[in-house]
Simulated assay, not measured.
Amino acid sequence: MRKLYLPPEWSKHKGTWLSYPHNPDTFFEKIDNVRDKYTDMVKLLSECEEVHINVNDEEMENDVLSRLKDKRANLNNVFIHRFPTNDAWCRDHGAIFVVDRDENKLVALDFKFNAWGGKYPYELDNEIPKKMAEYLNVERIEIDMVLEGGSIDVNGNGLLLTTESCLLNPNRNPNMSKEEIEENLKYYFGVEKILWLKEGIVGDDTDGHIDDITRFINENTVITVVEENPNDENYPILKENYEMLKTFTDIKGNKLNIITLPMPDPVYYKGDRLPASYANFYISNKYVIVPIFNCDKDKIALEILQSVFTDRAVVGIDASDIVVGLGTFHCLTQQIPYV
């Protein structure tokens, strides 16, 4: 049996893979500002690792390069690919890169993608893992299971976090039992124990991705969002998850260290609650890129994150318009581990 292993996000990256925002049904009239904040993120990433960006056509390629030139990004580290997508959420539609520990090589996992249970078109998105693997000239394993990268998080030492509301949703793998899903997670990601939380935050159209609620920041520590307002819809959801986290142990039976992050003030678009969360940060080689939402909680969240990521600079980028698309920076990114 192969020894596949998903390195934790804080391990060294060769690069980050992205898909450029373009879908008017996702970002509406916000698209120009979304691209502006998106390229702020790309500029930071280009300082410390390769950045690969999927675009649909020449217009998109010219647009991203023009914005990056204006921001003085390191274009030597930016690679544009004419790989058309339905949308921008590369965390979910892109390949998940693992390491084959026996051969010390990169492997692209190509899970099925069905746009979070068939909610949106996904024909182009589902072809992206194959194109990523071909470009990098790495082996691709096609897996007969629906899975999005935002639905899992690992600690690099045997643990994987996920949610029942997403992975056990009948709109993903109705013919697979919980035990069969666990077996696949353990084999393909090289983990020993699956930690199941319950539900995700209100407004999350992914049915509750873990990257909006709880993240590993080292082998024995999680950071999790909590809602302090008992009248808020997220209060009971996040309280239940927090209480569950307190019962979890690592593979040696030790309890996890738990650090709490506040939730931002509620963010709405046309009357709908959006899944705004500080937990949707992305850990790059040099920076931790954090979504912020123009409220008093921003400063508190950034200070907490900087206190735990002592080896990286924590940078907040306004995600008030990006979250109209129902995701932010972690949802947009997919790391390529360094082997």
Rank of each mutant, 00 (worst) to 15 (best):
V324C: 06
V154T: 05
H81Q: 09
I143Q: 00
S11C: 13
N155H: 07
L332D: 05
F293R: 05
K12H: 11
E164F: 12
R82S: 14
R2L: 12
S151N: 09
H13N: 06
I201W: 03
I53Y: 02
M176P: 11
N74Q: 08
D204N: 07
E142Y: 15
V323A: 07
M132W: 12
P170Y: 07
T26S: 14
P121C: 06
Y235I: 11
F189I: 05
I251G: 04
E29M: 12
K297I: 10
G208K: 01
I300T: 14
I237N: 00
L45F: 03
G316Q: 02
E123V: 11
I304H: 08
I292F: 09
I210N: 04
K178G: 08
K193W: 05
A276W: 01
D102G: 11
L65G: 03
P84C: 07
N294Y: 10
P129C: 05
D25V: 13
E29F: 12
E142T: 14
M263H: 09
Q334F: 09
G118F: 08
N280S: 08
L160N: 03
P8R: 02
I128Y: 04
G15L: 04
G94M: 06
R215C: 01
T206V: 10
D125A: 02
L136F: 10
P236H: 09
E47P: 11
L106Q: 07
V138R: 03
I336E: 01
E183S: 11
E303A: 07
D232H: 11
K198H: 13
E219T: 15
G325V: 04
I152Q: 04
F309E: 06
C331G: 07
T163G: 04
V308A: 00
Y268G: 12
T328G: 13
L261Q: 05
P337W: 01
K255N: 09
N23D: 14
F309L: 03
N62D: 14
L274A: 11
N184C: 13
R215G: 00
P170F: 05
K105T: 06
R101G: 03
T162R: 08
D272K: 15
Y188C: 03
R82C: 09
L238Y: 03
H209P: 07
D153C: 07
D250R: 10
D311V: 05
K299M: 12
V323S: 06
N257A: 02
V202L: 14
T260Y: 11
L197S: 07
P266W: 00
K193C: 05
P291K: 05
L197E: 04
E199V: 11
V99Q: 13
V51D: 04
I237V: 10
P264S: 00
V314Q: 01
P170V: 03
F293K: 02
P24E: 08
I194A: 08
Y242W: 14
Y135S: 12
G316H: 08
E127W: 07
W89G: 00
H22N: 06
A301M: 00
T247F: 03
C90E: 15
S151H: 09
R35C: 01
D40H: 13
N137A: 13
F189D: 06
N86G: 08
W116L: 08
E233Y: 12
C166G: 04
N74C: 06
K30T: 14
W17Y: 10
L68E: 02
E179W: 12
Y122N: 13
D100S: 10
R82A: 12
A301Q: 00
G117L: 03
A95T: 00
L75F: 05
A313G: 09
Y287F: 14
W10Q: 00
P174W: 09
N157Y: 10
Y268R: 13
